[in-house]
Design a protein around this nucleic acid. Sequence first.
DNA 1: ACGTTACATGTAATCGATTACAAATGCAAT
DNA 2: ATTGCATTTGTAATCGATTACATGTAACGT
Lengths: 341, 341
Amino acid sequence: MEQEAAPKITDVARVAGVSTATVSRALSKPETVAKQTREAVLAAAAETGYRINLAARNLRRRSTGAIVLLVPNLGNPFFSQILAGIESTLSSRGLSTLMVDTKHSGSGDEFILDYLHHSRADGIISLDGSLPPSILNSPGMAAENLPIVFGCEWLQNGHYPSVRANNEQGALLAIEHLASLGHSNIGYINGPDENVLSQVRKASTKRALKDRGVPVREDWFFAGDFTLESGASVARKWMKMEDRPSAIFCANDEIAFGLISELHQSGIRVPDQLSVIGYDDIDIAKRYIPALTTIWQPRFELGQTVAELLLKGVTDGGFGDTIQVKTLPVRLIIRQSTSAP
Amino acid sequence: MEQEAAPKITDVARVAGVSTATVSRALSKPETVAKQTREAVLAAAAETGYRINLAARNLRRRSTGAIVLLVPNLGNPFFSQILAGIESTLSSRGLSTLMVDTKHSGSGDEFILDYLHHSRADGIISLDGSLPPSILNSPGMAAENLPIVFGCEWLQNGHYPSVRANNEQGALLAIEHLASLGHSNIGYINGPDENVLSQVRKASTKRALKDRGVPVREDWFFAGDFTLESGASVARKWMKMEDRPSAIFCANDEIAFGLISELHQSGIRVPDQLSVIGYDDIDIAKRYIPALTTIWQPRFELGQTVAELLLKGVTDGGFGDTIQVKTLPVRLIIRQSTSAP
DNA sequence: ACGTTACATGTAATCGATTACAAATGCAAT
DNA sequence: ATTGCATTTGTAATCGATTACATGTAACGT
């Protein structure tokens, strides 16, 4: 195995007959060297197969050209559009993205901490609103003022910039839709209790029901956790009830699928016997049976917006005292899982 | 903004009253320093809020403690289990994972190349079998002998280790299931033509049909691209046909959903009028309506296996001439989308 | 012809952690 | 008391690219 050492900048310099400084400049600030030299350097770089050593560059520049993206669960297709939006914005500015699944990353908090301290990333985008405080309050975190922004989810007590979809509006649209169809027995399946989105969607659902004059039945507010199975489990409860809601609003699409599917197994049809609304409008929602009525969020745009917000923080070296919170509008997509009772 | 400089190893050394060498050792090879010193250093590190600068470490160590994971499409939930398997194996060995979506990463080939050359990653796992040759043949690539392994997909002409699911067996199981139900008019919807998995599944389907004595009808072999919409589009074609297959095997689950959903819109029911089999057994398959008969792959295990293979390559500094190809068995999961014709 | 400016390039210090090697210390065996 | 060995710690070179500063050169105006 004749492992030849990777060519370094001195090798290129020698081949091109210039100094390392010139090579460096020709590569990263081409306009500062004479055309002729630049071409010689480029040719030498190609000839030697030179690839920059990013560790060395990062060490010297004290920046990494990368940002860390914390995602609560990559398995949920909901995130893919957001990721695409983030990626497209960041890469157009020459930044690369390191994705980390906060649920999987076995190594725990300490692992994430290492990213945060300017040695691996220039900034952080978190789609996870449940970062352990141990991380955010870690010594240095505050002082270092590393740019961090939240997308979709956010931190309840912590002043960080964030971009959100309008969850209040989403709940309102869903409830108004059901109420206007004539439903007055409306239930709700929540996501995990500790999740901000769950909390807001649940509270907003209650408020919307009240505002509309629809009774709020606590026993029709079911616990869930954003999974298919939690929806299925509510289906079983629903079937056992004497007094049932005629419509259920779910905190995300997966819950809705689990619910509809389990009901279907027992011969109960949606929307004939129960109207169901989801949340997120993931790709399959349109192709489920029945096609799912749901709340659409501007996922790609949200990704772009959060990335732009971060970029501002990165170039300004922090956010100072102007902590922006942007809220994007959502839309109700009416399909076939809802009907009059 | 009183941006205090991040504490470095010299700061810790000063506080602990030892040299930087001792700090470094106390942190990364604790057993080589006296207990008392070790504790003093740890205390000093905690006090100063010291975080290692990975750029400096990587530069000096000439390794990164990270591997790059190339994923063709993070939006497909199929990958999440594989990612989990990879993550769990790698992180148990102290390696972190940088995920890159090869479809999105706007910056193109060059961007990926930079990862590959020992400056950002110690190895590569690719779940994408369509890496442009420009990358793999790039100067230095061969010489540097950087550990790279493929999972799921693989490169047709390129000798790299890989871990695959048994696609021949998958097609065989699907066809045998349909045939044994009594189907003799069997169609197939393929993934993208250039994809290895598409190619193998299609060829294996043909072989299985032949072996079973079922006629192979070229006009029943439809083109697709692994998306919901491509399945829907075949549904429209199917409905227009005079002479139709009574069962269709799809190269993945999403195609199957698109197919079933579009048929459903026109009042055609699965499995009554058409039996459908998918491939992958993504989570929603079990909760689709009807629940989808499909081919299950050991995704988590595949992830673990490919990670272990890579780890071997990383520790051995390459694979030498022993290019392993592992093939894992798949299973037929019979649900409700198939029945006798 | 001379000074000024603009531009191109080179020299060498620097980023922060690791580690080869040297030095110091303590202990046991002779 | 002396030697040898093991253990612990310190000194300083090193990883590879960037960039402040110095130097050199050409072009221009007067």
